Computed example of a mutant assay.
Amino acid sequence: MSTTAARPGQRSTHDPAPAARLPRARVVGPVTATRSLTPTAHDLLLLHHLSALRHTPGHHGQQPSLPAWAHDHLRARPWVAVSRSPILVGRSTTPTQPGRRTPNTVPASEQWIPVTIHGPQRHQELSAFAPRSTIARVMRPEDLLHRLGLLPATRTTRIPALHVLPSVDEIMTRQGLSWGPTGEVAYELASGAPVTRPTSHLQVLLRAPQPLGRNETAQLRQCLRQLPAQIDAEFETRHGAASLTEYAASTRILTLHTENGPRTVTDPWHPDIRAQ
């Protein structure tokens, strides 16, 4: 009996967990910068049915097991971050390479979200796939700031990357920009795990569906530099993300991080336009 592919947003997060094997994957779409029911890059996902989480295999065949540290960490704090990679869908044991399609592909019953598992140690990081039906909650970067008050005062006053969040919000509000923290700060705000270190940089994501002015970004960068924390800001277009510092420096060529890897562009909002 044939099946039909689920449209983004059609499957409820309360649907039964998928079969224990990761489907043979085909690409159904990018993890884009637009707000939708589909999780996007840098979103944090709270998962249930952790047994359905699958480590990204490096070869065809049996799925390798998650390492012990990943099992232990997820059991205590089942949060993962969405990676900037294609969403996969299908019914097999191993995903195909992103962008590859096979003739007469069987429509899938499950979407698999590319995620990164961050462990308690800096070197503990693992790529994986999470079935969409196991997502209990999605926290976007711009949804996290209000959770700052849930952290102990000893954290928010002594850790620079946490302490400057209200000041960054004031600057972004004046500029009329939608933004949120990512990286260690985002994970701590979502999960409560004290992972942000005194030396941690504050990673910031700006939503920029429309082009930003060079002068505007240069002024914004200057304001951020005056704060008592190292801030690494990037802006997200519909095609990927680019460094605010690189763009503000009026660099003619800059790097756009896309679902298929980095590429050099002249215009991050129209990446297919070639330099004249």
Rank of each mutant, 00 (worst) to 15 (best):
A153I: 09
P160Y: 09
S85D: 11
H123K: 13
D169K: 01
N260D: 11
I231K: 03
T40H: 03
A128I: 06
D272Y: 09
A108G: 15
L45K: 00
T237R: 06
P268S: 11
P39Q: 02
L202P: 03
P86F: 03
L177R: 05
S133E: 08
R54D: 08
L165P: 06
S178C: 11
T116P: 00
E125G: 15
L53S: 05
T116Q: 11
A6Y: 11
N215H: 07
Q10Y: 05
G183H: 03
E110K: 03
R207L: 02
T266R: 04
T32M: 06
I113F: 08
Q124I: 12
Q230G: 01
V82W: 01
Q124L: 12
D169W: 04
R132I: 14
A52H: 07
P198I: 14
H146N: 08
Q111W: 14
P194S: 10
G9H: 05
T96G: 13
Q230M: 10
N215L: 02
L212H: 00
I273T: 11
I159S: 08
H123G: 09
A20P: 02
T154Y: 09
I159N: 07
A128P: 02
G192C: 07
R24E: 12
V89N: 01
A233V: 01
R122I: 14
P211N: 06
D43R: 10
G180Y: 04
W179A: 07
S243A: 05
P120L: 11
L227V: 02
P181A: 07
A208W: 04
I273M: 10
R7M: 15
S191F: 05
N260I: 04
L202M: 05
S178V: 11
A17W: 08
S36V: 04
P141E: 07
D272I: 06
L22M: 13
S83R: 12
R137E: 15
P64I: 01
R263D: 00
S109E: 15
T237C: 04
A229S: 08
G58T: 15
R274K: 13
H123P: 08
T245S: 09
Q203D: 12
P39D: 02
H270W: 01
A68Q: 12
R11D: 11
A193S: 10
H257Q: 06
G29E: 14
P211C: 00
A19N: 12
R132V: 13
T56R: 15
T116S: 09
